[in-house]
Amino acid sequence: MTLLEASGVETLYGPGCPDCRDATGDRAGTNQCPHCGTVVACAEADLDVEGGEVLGIVGESGSGKSSLAEALALERDPEATVGGEVSYAGHDGNLLDVDYQTRHDLRTGDISLVHQHVRDGLDLEFTGGGNVAEKLLSAGWRSYEDVRARVRELFEETEIPVARMDDPTRTYSGGMQRRVQIARALATDPDLVVLDEPTTGLDVSVQARVLDTFRRVQREEGVAAIVVSHDLGVVRLLADRTLVMRHGRIVESGLTDRVMEDPHHEYTQTLINSVL
């Protein structure tokens, strides 16, 4: 069952001109249009995600992976011009055209985003439990005991000490804050979670445990995910299929182990070799 299908998704920063797309991308070797100066953060992106599947997006900084993920997660940058078409199971029309209310409803119910920066996703003055509860309360939960029980369950699922539930989030370690983000993202049983650089700023061993927790919960709940990372290890661990991006374009895609072990595109080969 196809959950999300995107075609021709693009994010442009600048005035844009008719030549922007032809003059940028992998072949042109740049993501900035030489005619009008517009930065084509991503363009011509086609992809689809099935229920329960994990799609990885890798690339160096500036490759457009975060722009693409943000467009798919309905995160809006008022500076950007977003184009293309994204259809989503059970929803009529183009997801990129929805009004604020629909977007808000989708974001509190169907599609969750785990932000790269904890501060963008959590209110550090709220308790850890409060941050998770916010998702439920925004989705219309009105029974205190139900909210409480669900928050406790999510803490257990994501391996955050339940005893810390009512402490301010700012007193949590980086790994715990990341888990709170994940617990929050999963709170309303979304069909799709988008993780933007889920391990940035964490120690390697903490990274691994956070990723493992996410992977376990993701499989148990059958939630689909889009994982954006510059770290091939993260994508290798989580993703069933992987897209490789460069200069705002998808240059290669396939099963994750195939992309890692039998990379076809020159850039992917360089990327893999620079790590291994």
Binding site: V204, S205, A208, R209, L211, D212, R216, R219, E220, L237
Partner: peptide, 17 residues
């Protein structure tokens, strides 16, 4: 292997999945 995942869970993983 994944760091800090015990052996029993490494083996159980494909079944859980």
């Amino acid at each position: 292997e994944i760091p800090r995942v015990p052996a029993v869970d490494v083996v159980a993983r494909p079944l859980v999945e």
